[in-house]
Write a protein that binds this DNA or RNA. Sequence first.
DNA 1: AGTTTCGGCGCC
DNA 2: AAAGGGCGCCGAAACT
Length: 562
Amino acid sequence: MTDRWALAPAEDGGVEIAPLGPDGLPAGPVRREPDLAAAVRERPEVARWVWRSTAEVYPRLLAAGVRVERCYDVEDAETLLLGHEGRHGEPRSAAAALARLRGGPVPPDPPQRSAEPGSQSSLFEPRAVQVPLTDLAAVYAEQQRRHEATAHPERMRLLTAAESAGMLIATEMNHAGLPWSAEVHRQVLHELLGERYAGGGEPRRLAELADEVSAAFGRRVRPDLPADVIKAFAQAGIKVRSTRRWEIESVDHPAVKPLIEYKKLYRIWVAHGWSWLQDWVREGRFRPEFQAGGTVTGRWVTNGGGALQIPKVIRRAVVADPGWRLVVADADQMEPRVLAAISRDPGLMEVAGRESDLYQSVSDRAFSGDRAQAKLAVLGAVYGQTSGDGLKNLAALRRRFPKAVAYVDDAARAGEEGRLVRTWLGRTCPPAVGAGEGAEEAGIPQDEPAESGGGSEWVPGYASTNARARGRFTRNFVVQGSAADWALLLLAALRQSCAGMAAELVFFQHDEVIVHCPEEESRAVVDAIREASALAGRLTFGETPVRFPFTTAVVECYADAK
DNA sequence: AGTTTCGGCGCC
DNA sequence: AAAGGGCGCCGAAACT
């Protein structure tokens, strides 16, 4: 690629830029310009901007109305490369990478700030250590070489490119915000919770439910205090270990019904109630701080506002602008389809090659038509279910789809034995806690490795509790993480096809994306999603029969999508 | 008084 | 039917 330029903001608000040669080093003199946004705006021919941190640069560009098509985020790539090299946790800053390159003392990473409601703090990162452009380019050039040393260089290049695209998209989503009607939200809260009382106490409906619970127990009980509730049940002659809903649901006592209702509404009140609205919604937009690649598996997180946990009833407040629509697109059975693609199990690839309900197809083959059982078995295999009907169902799944189950079993065994596992594109799981030479030298006891030996059955009972927990983690990691790999490519492709339109990506939640667009663009957006899905499948997994269908809905209100 | 952990539950 | 993976958030409890 020829049209790569490096970019490094200077302390005085100016910027250093330089074209890069094939080796990743500056191919011309470093230019210094006074205005970051102007420097980028004036060079639309640049195919990819190489910079230290998207979070540092891109919000400033967007604020000035400048978008870029592609970037390469050096610090983000450093994180992924370190992980792949088994050096998870080493400082990831460009300054640290430079120090490793030059053999100097490696500075620790600056501490992460936490989000405050409505803050604009991501516009600038004052704590970040700047590196001059020539040094940044040196780190970049070295990273290009490190890509070549990975197990699958072309996949690793795709991963860092996709993750950088994710950084751009997350920043653009933060800039756009999710359309949010405070009026509808207040209406929903009033319907569910009743009037608020002065003084900030519980709203009417919660107070009533608390009274009902107390009346049922015959004494004052605070339903939000688990210890109080457990004691009250004990006094009524009922032993419960916790107040989790699934545990008390089956208890025969008049307090149970109002208690469960209280918990449900209490949750909405504290997490998505009036104070949430006050804190997070401004001028018709909810602005969560999306953070691409915020989890070890590559899933995104949001920083503040709980944007990835919006309760279904609250989604009524997500309303398109007048004349606009929300295109809500949900990938159908994403994780088992990803498992089919990565394991190349012939039977699972065959059912995943159809767009029809995958769980139904699996159940027709292995569970005599019981879809619910098939879904449980698949999820149990991916999550590492350890007991109950799950194990029996897993056996049926293993008979029909041996390579698929072996794939996750192998990942689980690797985790139990303290080895690393990777996603399809090469994102690598962190090492076991206490693992590594340091721990051994220090005499920290290690978990016993699981019983090794042939066969891909996973035999419970042979490894320690910690090792088994790590096995469940790595088992899930390869699927959840590879799904995140694919989802990133999907987002990048979708963003590309929306580039000429007014349509904006405004929300992303693991396997679901929302595009906000003028009504007349909504058909084109639906088509774009289908095309992006097919492209993402090909790019991520190569030639594969597996398809990734979406359920799409064009709605004015998010709650109407399902 | 301030900070960390826990319990419970929301989403996938 | 049973309680497995990844997160964030809040208040209370448990600490320093």
